[in-house]
Design a protein around this nucleic acid. Structure first.
Lengths: 206, 206
DNA sequence: GCCATTACGCTACGACTCGTAGCGAAAGCA
DNA sequence: TGCTTTCGCTACGAGTCGTAGCGTAATGGC
C-alpha cells in the first residue's frame, strides 16, 4: 500500500512519515472508538499533525479508513504447503487472523456499507483490498493446475466465473463467520470449509 | 417483527401507526441518504412525528436501523420445490432479492460494523435477523433428511457445527457477491453456488 | 546562496447534528 | 371525572464538520 503523489517538480514534498503516522493513528482510533466514534480531529491529534493536513490528503473519513484498513491486507501471501487444500487453509487462516483484529472488524464493514452509495469509494476498495485477495485465488488455482490437482481450464469465460464464485465463497464465508456469526474461524472450522469447497469443486467440475 | 412494549395497564398507549411510519421512513432515508447521511431528525420529519418520540422508543440510530432492516427479512420463507437443491436455490434467490434493495445494502453492513463494538446491538441483530435465517437452514436440512436426500444425523454436536458452516457459507457468499463484489446473485450464479455446496456436503459426509 | 513553490501548523469560523429537558395538550383506563 | 402515559413542540449546550487565512518550513531550480 504505497500512496503516490503526482511528482511535482518543485516545492516542499509531503512528509511520508506523516502518512504512516496518520494511517496508524486511524487504525488505533478504530480500535478505541469504532467507526462512528472516529473523528478526523481525533486522528490528527493522535498522529501529531494538523487537522488541515488530513483534509489536504484525503477527501474524508471513508477514504482515510479504506487506506488504513487496506494496509492490514498487505501481509496476505499465498503459502506453498504442497497441496491445494493446505494452501487454501493457510491463506484463509491468514485472512481470518486479519479479520480478528478489531481495527479490521469495525473498519472493513463500515466502508463497504458506505461504498454502496459511492461509486468512487467502491472502486478504491476494489483496487486496494478486493483485487489483492482475488489475485491469491487465481495464483492458487494456477499452481494447483500445474500440480495436476485441477484440470487446466480452456474456456477463459468459464474460468473467470469459477474464480469469482470461489472468491465470494471463501471470503464471504470467513467474513460472515467472523463478523456476523461472531465466532472464530479457527483451524477446525477452516478445515471443514476447505473440505466442502474442494470436494464440491471437484465434483461439480465433472 | 412485532415490537412489544410492557403492557402498562393505564395511560395513553403508544401509537402502533407511528412505529410503522417511523420504520418505513427509516428505510426510505437509507435509500435517499445512506447510513452516514441518515439523521434521526430527518427520519422524524419524514414519518410525521416529533424527534423526541423517536428517542423515547429507540436508544439511537443503530437500534432503529436494525429494526427497520429486520422487517425486510420477514418475507423470507422456505419454499417446497421438491428437492434440496431447488429449495436452497429458492431461498437464496429470495435472500439475494432482499440484498439487492438499497435500503438493505446500506443499512445491513453498517449495523454489522457498529455491532463489532456493541454487545447489545450484536444480540439484537442475532435475534431479529440472523436467527431467522439460520432457522431456514435447519428446516431445509430436516426436510431433506425426511426426504432421504441427507442421512439422518445422530450426533447433535456434529450436526450443529454442520448447520453453522452451511449457514455462513450460504449467507456469506451471497452477501459478499452482492455487496463486496457488487455483482448480481442471479439464477446462474446461485445455481453454481448450490451445486458446489451440495456436492461438497455430500462428498464430505462420506 | 537566493527565490519560487509547495506543504505544514495553527487559529477561527458558520453551519450543522446530537441528545435532553420542560411544557401543555391528547388519549386512553377506572 | 380523575389518573396516567404518550405526544408535539421549543429551546438548549455540546460537539463535529470542512474551510479559509496566515505565517513558517522544506524542497528544487537558477
Amino acid at each position: 500500500m504505497q500512496r503516490r503523489y503526482p511528482a511535482s517538480r518543485t516545492g516542499r514534498p509531503r512528509s511520508a512519515a506523516a502518512d504512516t503516522a496518520i494511517l496508524a493513528a486511524t487504525r488505533q482510533a478504530l480500535v478505541d472508538l469504532g467507526w462512528s466514534g472516529l473523528t478526523l480531529s481525533d486522528v490528527a491529534v493522535r498522529a501529531g499533525v494538523a487537522k488541515t493536513t488530513l483534509y489536504r490528503r484525503w477527501a474524508g473519513k471513508n477514504e482515510l479508513v479504506v487506506d488504513a484498513v487496506a494496509e492490514l491486507f498487505d501481509e496476505l501471501t499465498l503459502p506453498d504447503r504442497g497441496s491445494l487444500a493446505a494452501d487454501i487453509e493457510g491463506v484463509v487462516l491468514q485472512f481470518a487472523a486479519i479479520l480478528a483484529r478489531p481495527e479490521a472488524r469495525s473498519g472493513l464493514m463500515a466502508v463497504v456499507a458506505e461504498a454502496t452509495r459511492d461509486e468512487a469509494l467502491r472502486e478504491r476498495i476494489r483496487a486496494s483490498i478486493v483485487d489483492r485477495q482475488k489475485r491469491l485465488v487465481i495464483a492458487g488455482r494456477t499452481r494447483a493446475q500445474q500440480r495436476g490437482e485441477l484440470p487446466p481450464e480452456s474456456d477463459a469465460d468459464r474460468s473467470a466465473r469459477a474464480v469469482d464464485l470461489i472468491f465470494d465463497m471463501v471470503a464471504g464465508s470467513v467474513v460472515h463467520r467472523t463478523l456476523v456469526s461472531n465466532q472464530p474461524a479457527d483451524e477446525e472450522w477452516v478445515h471443514g470449509l476447505t473440505r466442502v469447497l474442494l470436494s464440491g469443486l471437484a465434483a461439480s467440475a465433472r
